[in-house]
Computed example of a mutant assay.
Amino acid sequence: MKHFRKTFLMLIILLYPLLHFGQERINWVSFTQLDSLLSIAPRETMIFMHTDWCSYCRKMEQEIFTKKDIIELINKHYYAVRLDAESIQEISFDQSIWQPKSKKKKAGRYHPLALQLLQGRNIVFPSILRLDKEFRLRDIQQKYLNSKELHDFLE
């Protein structure tokens, strides 16, 4: 019985990665990649603005952005970008370098690019921005969206 458990455990460890093989995922791109992609092949952009502490943001990433119909819709029609609104990383985009005001990450201290993209709106997470091919804001949702709401928003 002891040998069986060890063998069973070893099989699970070895075969677990195969369970995820072939699963589709959203093709998330960085802002640097987005800059190049928009100049070569313009397409609408979806920006998912989140924070580390936002439970609804994590829930969307785990439950909504893993649904096959959502993945197909986003990958087919959008460039998808994730932006941690409290990021302390320098972001190069649109011939500008966006530098955070601080080197330490702190709740409530937002990245200048996040503030620019929200265009003076209240800061609510998650925020999903939909931008046209010229990178102009078309629409924004600042709340948790279930899969039907997100699908309707992106259609």
Rank of each mutant, 00 (worst) to 15 (best):
I97P: 11
K104G: 00
R58D: 13
I64H: 03
I74K: 10
W28N: 07
L115C: 01
N27A: 12
Y78N: 03
L15E: 10
K106I: 03
D35P: 12
H77K: 06
Q116V: 00
R25N: 10
R43P: 13
D52N: 10
S87T: 05
E90M: 11
L73F: 02
P17V: 07
Q116K: 12
A114R: 03
A107Q: 09
I64K: 10
E86Y: 06
D35S: 03
F31C: 08
L14D: 01
K106Y: 00
W28G: 10
I70P: 13
I91A: 10
Q116A: 07
K106L: 05
I74E: 04
I70G: 13
I91V: 02
T66V: 05
A107P: 11
I74F: 12
I40G: 07
P17F: 10
K106P: 02
P112F: 01
I26W: 01
A85S: 07
I74S: 12
T45A: 04
L15C: 12
M60I: 03
K105H: 02
R58F: 13
H50Y: 15
M60T: 06
E63F: 12
P42T: 09
A85G: 09
I88N: 00
L18I: 11
L19P: 01
N27K: 11
S55H: 13
H20I: 14
S36N: 13
M60Y: 01
S96G: 11
W98E: 03
R58G: 14
I13G: 13
T51M: 03
E44L: 07
K76R: 13
F31Q: 11
P17E: 11
I71S: 03
S30Y: 11
I40N: 14
K59W: 00
S102H: 05
F48L: 01
K106V: 12
I40D: 15
P112V: 03
L118R: 02
I47N: 04
R58K: 15
S96V: 14
S92C: 06
H50T: 08
R82P: 01
F21V: 12
Q33G: 06
R82F: 02
W53C: 06
L38D: 05
Y79A: 09
T51V: 01
A114C: 00
R109Y: 12
L19V: 14
R43K: 15
L37S: 08
V29T: 05
